[in-house]
């Protein structure tokens, strides 16, 4: 929490990236185990997995760094 008592915008951004990252990462993993009949171009790169993981990690860092319960 900031010194004036408000939650930082960066915390909200962290939550957004974290939730989206988890959902995209899990969707990517599901596609790995259940390959779709119609695949997107460059499916073999599994963009959902690594992009979801990147968002998840960045989101997690922001959530911790700007956690309102942190002193």
């Amino acid at each position: 929490m900031r010194s004036d008592g408000t939650i930082s915008i960066w915390f909200f951004i962290g939550v957004s990236l974290l939730v989206n990252g988890v959902l995209i990462f899990l969707a990517g993993l599901y596609q790995l185990s259940h390959p779709p009949a119609v695949k997107v171009v460059l499916y073999d790169l599994h963009a959902s997995v690594w992009w979801g993981a990147i968002l998840l990690i960045i989101g997690l860092i922001y959530c911790i760094r700007y956690n309102p319960n942190r002193a």
Binding site: I24, A27, G28, Y30, P36, V40
Partner: peptide, 15 residues
């Protein structure tokens, strides 16, 4: 967007 993005990524792109 539709060319490269499967479920999840597509939702983020639309968002």
């Amino acid at each position: 967007l539709a060319r490269y993005c499967g479920p999840g990524l597509l939702g983020l792109g639309i968002t």
